[in-house]
Write a protein that binds this DNA or RNA. Structure first.
Lengths: 114, 114
DNA sequence: TATTGAGTTGACTAACAACTCAACATAGTC
DNA sequence: GACTATGTTGAGTTGTTAGTCAACTCAATA
């Protein structure tokens, strides 16, 4: 089950919406040539923040591209490293190597926490 | 409840073991002057990888200093961004702004998952 | 008092991330 | 066949991270 690259997916999404690289770049706030390189996988995926803006500009959920980018927003990093308990959790999680199903279970447990 | 700084704790741990900065630095693989600056909080805590080496050199669990460093190993980052489900979890967690107690609860739920 | 061991400090740097800028190619259209 | 819209490429830029190097201080000891 090959995973599609960030670039290929971005190109596909952008074309689906019928948006030009320049227009997308303008609404995201980057140079259009950067978009080109990203789409052709010449560069690493953009920062989490830029990816989020891209998703917003294209009207797709952030997660679509974020999960392919392998990046975490600085905000997110702060959330996860702000307390010892959070870091302990991270370690436990790393040691367990959760499956997707387990992640989902954990998310629902999380929501029941309040 | 003031939290001790990374530097202060490192200095304390190192002295407890009776190790000189130069010796610690040598076994970690950094310049000894770097250790000095870290201990006096002149620089930000080292990378997660270096912190782990420091803990190993001093014979204390990684978590002791890692939790104060506010950093996440690249390995950890991979764990957290490797799947869409994990990323969904991260978003849910960010939105909730968990307390320490809640993190601990979540960790115990995590352990009961298997 | 010279030397040795330990720690501190300022200035500098290498590597990387996340881009920009300018030039060019290519296809359609007036 | 010039003009326009779109995309690609190479080289360079900016900021940050994670340190290094050389010079110094201070205390103990031979």
């Amino acid at each position: 089950m090959e995973e599609i690259s960030y670039g290929k997916l971005l190109k596909e999404l952008r074309r689906q919406k019928g948006v030009a690289q320049r227009d997308l770049a303008a609404s995201v706030g980057v140079d259009f040539s950067y978009i080109s390189k990203i789409e052709n996988d010449r560069l690493q995926p953009p920062s989490a923040d830029t990816t989020i803006k891209i998703c917003e500009a294209l009207g797709v959920p952030n997660e679509v591209l974020l999960s392919l980018s392998g990046k975490v927003s600085s905000e997110m990093k702060d959330t996860m490293t702000s307390s010892k308990s959070a870091i302990k959790f991270l370690h436990a999680v790393k040691d367990m190597q959760l499956t997707d199903a387990e992640w989902d279970k954990l998310t629902s447990k999380l929501k029941k926490l309040r």
